[in-house]
Nucleic acid binder design. Structure first.
Length: 584
RNA sequence: GCGCCCGUAGCUCAAUUGGAUAGAGCAGUGGACUUCUAAUCCGCAGGUUACAGGUUCGAUUCCUGUCGGGCGUACCA
């Protein structure tokens, strides 16, 4: 094997080799407890914990028990660590699992995983193949992810994009942890928004039929626009409204001008079709669409009010029905039914969540924008107050997306049509980049989406980096195949001894843990970050170890490692809904 | 005023839910293509983690307060 001389003092630049060490942890856990027992036991509140150090010099697993127990044993942490180490060596530990136990810093016990164990893990990745990364916490459980849920008043915008991609990816993550998952879209076609939409279409329709129709100005200041006289003051100004009107005219259908519902229906139909197409383009398929109206038709929501009344959580005041949210710790009570007799959104929302729980889901995930942050607790607490297990409801709040164009934030309003649609975004930067941009950041931080950067920046875009690593591996494997090299038969994995090879294996092992953690926390960006680490680890390996041209045994071992890397990238990108091309 | 989120390198963001020397990308700067894909790699530089206290072996992380930004705080959704 060639020797590799590091240019810096560090042996390896990979700071995070997060292997899946759960089996190893339970092995060490049992043995350390055994040793501690012989040393005089542990306090009742003691929890034995392991960490995976960021710094490779600190081994693969670290245990801080000695520091935690310093007070209990009234001895210095280092002495305790020495005693534990001696105890473990006396057992002894299996050298095929742990190759070294070291004491460092203030009293950390650092464990090094033996290469034999790593080679077994590598073989496991290859035999699991496309399913490597699956875990089982959700097996036998059902989850419902509700997301997008935009009323059909216009095309999906960039803002909806974050919601859509987050929701879909959370659903994928849950599937990978064993859940049976349904994706649901909740909408309301009976509200004021939709009525205004219908009236907007009708006004455009009338103007198309009669070009001489009177016009008026609406809006204020720079936002002032000229519209046909019948246009609602707060109507929708997007060009798609006129498109829908023109389509209605060119169809042979005769429509009565008074029939506003027909205009609304036509708009709803057309817009929903477009939303569906946009979602499909992003790789998103909804399993169900839930219409808020069904909650009224079943009478469910009126029944809910009675149930609140019985618990003295609802009362009448000023002609309205109020929910006693002060009982949930809020400053004020809130209105459930307006004095007009029309419910506020809170009531159907509570009904909808009860409905979801009654459908038997173990986990009910909502993906909401930051504007819901103050309102969803009412819903969750309301559901809980009626005796349901509200802990099964999980609300993922994401902060808003700021679009930046030419260094300036773009102001967006669906009504004024001053927005960038998701389709336009995908036209400009592609589906993969669009998904990745929305996923690469933690949901609870503001996302700045720089259009200029995303557009031109094929070389600065992290998603290409991941895809490139995959394509590069496939290229090598193709070339190897051409010259007749094969990974069939016995392969000596023990030839993989280079630092970059070991680090790469350790990194690859981390996929199942990363996926399950991202699923548990509903934070897909963790997986995106992890995949970058995989690509970095591979590139390090690539720069230091050749495959083609090496002795056959070594070359075949490395081909296996490369194959496993491609598999991890492909599986991980798949979870994010991003393609893993074979050529770029 | 109140509630929630955020404040980390010039910019955009990470940091294994309290760990060891706070990491990437972009921008800057200096190098590397007869070599499996240079959409790449290797250096250098860049930090009092907004600020002040507190909790403990140990704080970017938890608590309190201050400052600054975002979203809410409707008989809108």
């Amino acid at each position: 094997m060639e020797s590799w001389t590091p240019k810096s003092g560090r042996l390896c630049d990979i700071r995070f080799c997060r292997a899946n060490t759960s089996k190893m942890q339970s092995y060490l856990h049992a043995n350390i407890l055994l040793v501690l027992e012989s040393m005089g036991g542990t306090p009742s509140d003691f929890v034995l914990e392991f960490q995976q150090p960021g710094n490779p010099e600190h081994g693969d697993l670290a245990c801080n028990a000695a520091m935690q127990l310093a007070r209990h044993y009234k001895r210095a942490p280092k002495q305790i660590a020495e005693a534990i180490k001696a105890g473990l060596e006396a057992l002894p530990l299996d050298v095929n699992k742990i190759s070294a136990v070291e004491i460092a810093g203030p009293g950390f016990l650092n464990f090094r995983i033996s290469n034999v164990y790593l080679f077994d893990a590598l073989a496991d990745i290859l035999s699991a193949g496309p399913s490597f990364g699956h875990t089982y916490v959700g097996t036998g459980k059902r989850a419902l992810v509700e997301f997008v849920s935009a009323n059909p008043t216009g095309p999906l915008t960039v803002g909806h994009g974050r919601n859509a991609v987050l929701g879909d990816t959370i659903a994928r993550l849950l599937q990978w942890t064993g859940y049976e998952v349904e994706r649901e879209y909740y909408f309301n076609d009976a509200g004021r928004q939709m009525r205004v939409l219908g009236e907007s279409v009708r006004a455009r329709y009338m103007a198309e039929l009669n070009p001489l129709i009177a016009t008026k100005m609406i809006g204020e200041g720079d936002d002032k626009v000229e519209v046909p006289e019948p246009f609602p003051e707060d109507g929708y100004l997007g060009a798609y409204i006129a498109d829908i009107a023109r389509e209605l005219i060119s169809s042979s259908e005769e429509i009565k001008i008074e029939d506003t519902d027909r205009f609304k229906q036509a708009a709803e139909h057309k817009i929903f079709a477009e939303i569906g197409a946009t979602l499909k383009r992003m790789g998103i398929h909804m399993d169900s669409f839930f219409n808020e109206r069904s909650l009224y038709e079943s009478g469910q929501i009126w029944e809910i009010i009675e149930r609140f009344r019985k618990k003295d959580l609802a009362y009448d005041k000023d002609g309205a029905v109020w929910l006693r949210t002060t009982a949930f710790g809020k400053e004020q009570d809130t209105v459930l039914v307006k004095s007009t007799g029309e419910p506020t959104y809170r009531l159907p929302d509570i009904g909808y969540h009860i409905e979801k729980l009654e459908r038997g889901f173990d986990r009910v995930v909502d993906v909401f924008g930051a504007d819901h942050i103050a309102t969803f607790p009412d819903v969750v607490e309301g559901v809980r107050a009626l005796g349901y297990d509200a802990d099964r409801i999980e609300v993922v709040i994401y902060q808003f997306v700021t679009l930046v164009r030419s260094g300036q934030p773009v102001k967006m309003s669906t009504r004024k049509a001053t927005y960038v649609t998701l389709d336009e975004l995908m036209d400009e930067v592609g589906e993969d980049v669009t998904r990745f941009f929305f996923l690469m950041r933690s949901p609870n931080t503001h996302l700045e989406f720089d259009l200029d950067l995303a557009k031109e920046a094929s070389d600065t875009n992290p998603v290409f980096y991941l895809q490139y690593a995959h394509a590069r591996i496939q290229s090598i494997l193709r070339k190897a195949d051409e010259i007749g090299m094969s990974i069939d038969g016995e392969v000596e994995l023990s030839l993989l001894t280079h630092d970059t090879e070991i680090v790469l294996i350790k990194t690859l092992m981390g996929l199942p843990m990363q996926i399950s953690r991202a699923a548990e926390l509903s934070e897909p960006h963790r997986l995106a970050n992890f995949l970058r680490e995989v690509a970095v680890a591979f590139t390090q390996f690539y720069g230091n170890c050749r495959i083609i041209g090496e002795a056959e045994n070594l070359a075949r071992a490395r081909m296996l490692l490369a194959t496993a890397t491609a598999q991890v990238l492909k599986n991980g990108l798949g979870v994010l809904g991003i393609s893993a091309p074979d050529r770029m």
